[in-house]
Amino acid sequence: MDGCEAPWHKAQFTFFYNSDAITDPPTSLQGILDWAQAHPGRFTYPGPPDFTGSVFLREVMLSTAGGAVQVPLTYSDEAFAEHAPAALQALTELKPSLWREGATYPRDEQALNTLSADGEVDIAMTYGPATLTDLVESGALPPSTKVLTLEEGTVGNASFLALPVNAADAAGAMVVANIALSPEQQAAKADPGTWGQFTVLDTDLLTPTQRSLFDQLPESPIVPDYEELSRNAHGELASEWVPALNEAWRQDVASAPRPGGGRRSRDGLPSWPCRR
């Protein structure tokens, strides 16, 4: 269909923690930040522009704004100036309690998983929670790993397949996209042993044989099923928010010499996107 993309799978931003180290886990994002300040050096997040670190920034912004409904999905300079400073301020205050006192951040999600496996941090995050089962089975993460669900929900998204306008084999590509959307492929992909990505198909609309493919998927001891994982999920913000927040984080949180420091313009707004 012209101008549309084919959905492929769904993902949910998830926190996980080491249940041996934390017996009473926090249940909200603010709770996680408070826990981090109470346990210095035991929490960190991947440094933006890494994808997972970037979405953590947006989660913090939604939390400091008072909920996902407060922040408009589309980007505008006014919305950014209204909501971003509180998030950056929260992260700057959090900085001394982070791993390595926030002087550096893990390179990406895999580096954070390694820190978690080595016992350097107790709470970590991922945008692909379905892979957690496989990671724990293979020993990459400790067996006491558990998913930390937040009361206010987290960001969820769907991935899509698209065909470029000047594709050489558009018909063949469309066949591949159809196969990727078929119930058999989606069920195979949702098996944690294969990849473990959640399906975009609504199982209620499938035939009973197709639905049985999904019912037969093994249950994971670590990752709850998608309905519980995506409770209260909110949608992704528009893509213009991403570089704006990443750049503001880099200038005002990562490079700042000490908490409360960093370059700020006279009216207290962050330096991005108001060009110097």
Binding site: G47, P49, P243, N246
Partner: peptide, 27 residues
């Protein structure tokens, strides 16, 4: 430098690759 260095400050090649692969094409 990318694997073993801190987030900031970053040497020239790390900065160049980060900006080149940025989501923001204006970088």
């Amino acid at each position: 430098a990318w694997l073993l260095g801190p987030t900031t400050p970053e040497p020239l090649p790390v900065r160049a690759v980060r900006l080149f692969t940025s989501v923001d094409l204006a970088a």
